[in-house]
Computed example of a mutant assay.
Amino acid sequence: MLTKAAALLALATLAPVVHAAEFEYLGLYSDVSRSSQSQDCGGYDIELWAVRDHAAGSNVAGLFRLVDGDCDKAPRPIFNGRLNRKTGELTFEVPVSESPVLSTGTFKGAMTDRTLAGTLTLANGNTEAGRTQAMTIKIDRKQN
Rank of each mutant, 00 (worst) to 15 (best):
A15E: 12
P95L: 11
V101C: 04
Y25H: 09
L90E: 14
G43F: 04
Y44Q: 09
D53A: 12
R52L: 13
S38T: 15
A74N: 10
L90F: 11
V94M: 04
V51L: 05
L66G: 05
A50H: 12
L63P: 01
E98G: 10
V17W: 07
G43Q: 15
S33N: 07
I78A: 07
E24P: 00
Y25F: 15
S36T: 08
L83S: 05
T104S: 07
F23H: 05
L63F: 04
V32L: 08
C71A: 12
L63D: 02
D31L: 03
L48A: 10
R82N: 11
E98A: 12
P16L: 01
D72P: 00
L48G: 05
G69T: 03
R52K: 15
I46S: 03
G109L: 13
L48Q: 14
A55T: 12
A50E: 14
G27W: 06
L83C: 08
P77M: 04
R65W: 06
V101A: 09
H19Q: 10
N59K: 04
V101M: 10
W49N: 13
G42Y: 12
G62R: 09
F64I: 02
V67I: 14
N84Q: 03
W49T: 11
V94T: 14
D40H: 13
G69I: 01
G62V: 07
G43I: 05
F79V: 08
D72M: 07
Q37I: 11
V17Q: 12
Y25S: 11
V96G: 00
A61P: 03
Y25E: 14
G88F: 02
D45R: 01
I46W: 02
